[in-house]
Design a protein around this nucleic acid. Structure first.
Lengths: 351, 351
DNA sequence: ATCTAGGGTGAATGCGCTTTCAGAAGAAAT
DNA sequence: ATTTCTTCTGAAAGCGCATTCACCCTAGAT
């Protein structure tokens, strides 16, 4: 910048103005400066600018370093499938990027490898005006510290820190509606719910929705999932499906569950495969449902009935909240719940 | 930082060391500092750090602001399809993010709205250690200036500036192999190639591959595509397909083209729909192929035979090149060509 | 007890830019 | 020609951190 100033015979202040506020510089002077900048290959330092102006024009996103084992497995088995599998994080990124672009922000993304002062999270936090965090990505403790300094919005999970903005999807409502559909529209009465880890708030919320649907329909209300998966993967889905089959082997047809509701799509897809291996027909012998609406869910046979999450909107809303908070730091914390929609497909007997 | 230093009774130099090089500080002192930082909610400024150390630990990606009209249309018509459509940019982002993560970098992404000194491109350039640019995103002129200051890798396109690293996919080889497949394996002899804009180097390279295949097979070699689309969209694919049909209406069966090779998948998908409307069966009446291997290509009926681009690898390689160049600025410019693979599906008569 | 290493720490400088605050230059008015 | 506004431009003071250099302290060696 000093070089540009010298070369064009002005002061650095004027060079700065040329970039920050072109109209405040006489056209002729401006041209001289721009010309010099071009000749010198001058690229303004975002760092210095950010330091001086105390704003970066960048928003951030931190997501878990969860290298989805299912996705990897699929990729090896079928390179086609790999392309189709758009991850949760991909969609959030897309949503945020779109919204950020509208507001003139760039987006800085990083998967958190681990915590600690030298983590990527710290890197992101130090370089953005505000950022979004996927639940269970950043230790609450770190988040607590960071959020005192800049806007943070929490995505999809419990609101661990109550002064943060946060967005969730209607997990309970979705599962409730899904179960209602099975009960009322398909006349099923014996439903089995396969949950996830206890620490997964999403899975728990979905189970609560399931309970509510049972209550609504006057069916017995279980106080815990019929089975829990260790991880919410296809492998575990397959294992739990088989476990359920084995457990119910002795029952008569009129006692046996008529549907398996899985806490997410990955498990449901795994279950579909296990059931096929066992020769159990879906949906004739038993209905199967998932949750999430991942792309894979519509490619499997039979296509999976599930609850679609508006993940892209999640990302877009995140940016909106950040932008709003940036313009008013005093605003009381906001908590949004995004509606979900039922995708009725063949695995429950529809379509 | 000054506050932290004061509160923990040390100098700012020590606070800095605690973060930059923890081992150089006595454990007891370090704890005091960390404690103070926690109490004060201290978040190191990436800007200041970057300014002082002249490195950001961030890599960038600029891609076109091409709001894909097809994707938007699909989204409205069928919210399911929307999820499945993983864009080119999504995949590059994913590839780059993975690779960046491995190297400890975060990723800054931005679609370029327009050029000029205040563009998002400028923002990215000023905040990263190096970045990747999708072809035809940034004016060559701007790129020329920026690339004098920091590593830039050009993705998928002509190498506009010869001192840049750059990566392309084997467009010509792929199309040539595709055409060879139609000719040799399916015995087709009359092939029509539908190209894209003249300025699209990818489309042109694909056409050259097509020409080569004709030459290889001893068939007449066209010196231009049978038809050109204005834009490489579904709508244009449909239009050109119909135009081709009309043009050949008067021909006998033994003169009529047996296959339509489109320069990309989007057009081919549009064509598929148009042909269906016209009652033309694929592949019985005519074979149809695309190029790219977008997820949509396997969902449509019939599934589209196409050439799969290794887009994720494109992103990963981009990061590798950047990292390498960062460690050796003097290295001669590299030019990589990534291999593609043929996806034989039903639309050409396979499977 | 004296000397020598080294690890640990602080003072000071500069990274490249933004942003007042004044002052200079030009235009308009008297 | 002088005064009075505007419009432009420059000087200078940071922004928050990394880093060098010098210095101090402690522990082991003599």
């Amino acid at each position: 910048m000093y070089d540009v100033a010298e070369r064009s015979g002005v002061s650095i202040a004027t060079v700065s103005r040329v970039y920050r506020n072109p109209d405040s510089v006489r056209a002729q002077t401006r041209e001289r400066v721009l010309e010099a900048a071009r000749e010198l290959g001058y690229v303004p330092s975002g760092n210095a600018r950010g330091l001086a102006s105390r704003t970066t024009g960048v928003l951030g996103l931190c997501f878990p370093d969860y290298a989805d084992p299912d996705a990897e497995a699929d990729a090896e088995a079928d390179s086609d499938a790999d392309d189709a599998v758009m991850l949760y994080s991909d969609q959030i990124i897309r949503g945020m990027e779109r919204a950020a672009r509208r507001h003139g922000y760039a987006l800085l993304i990083a998967a958190s490898l681990e915590g600690g002062p030298e983590s990527l999270v710290a890197k992101v936090a130090g370089r953005v005006d505000g950022f979004a965090v996927l639940a269970q990505t950043v230790p609450t403790e770190d988040l607590e510290v960071i959020s005192r300094r800049l806007p943070v919005v929490m995505l999809a999970g419990p609101r661990e820190i109550d002064h943060l903005d946060h967005i969730v999807v209607a997990n309970a409502d979705g599962e409730r509606e899904l179960a209602r559909h099975l009960i009322e529209d398909h006349g099923l009465r014996r439903l089995a719910f396969i949950g996830g880890e206890v620490e997964s708030p999403d899975a728990e919320a979905r189970f609560r929705g399931f309970q509510q649907a049972c209550r609504d329909a006057g069916l017995p209300v279980p106080d815990a999932p019929d089975l829990r998966a260790e991880m919410m993967t296809q492998a575990e889905g397959a294992r739990t499906a088989e476990a359920l089959l084995d457990r119910n082997a002795g029952l008569s047809d009129s006692e046996r569950p008529q549907a398996m509701l899985f806490a997410n799509d990955q498990m449901a897809v795994g279950a579909l495969r296990a059931l096929e291996r066992r020769g159990v027909r879906v949906p004739e012998d038993i209905a199967v449902t998932g949750f999430d609406g991942i792309p894979l869910s519509r490619i499997v046979r039979p296509p999976l009935t599930t609850v679609r999450q508006p993940i892209r909107q999640l990302g877009e809303q995140a940016v909106e909240l950040l932008v709003q908070r940036l313009s008013d730091r005093e605003r009381p914390p906001v908590s949004l719940m995004l509606p979900v929609s039922l995708a009725r497909r063949a695995s429950c007997g529809c379509g």
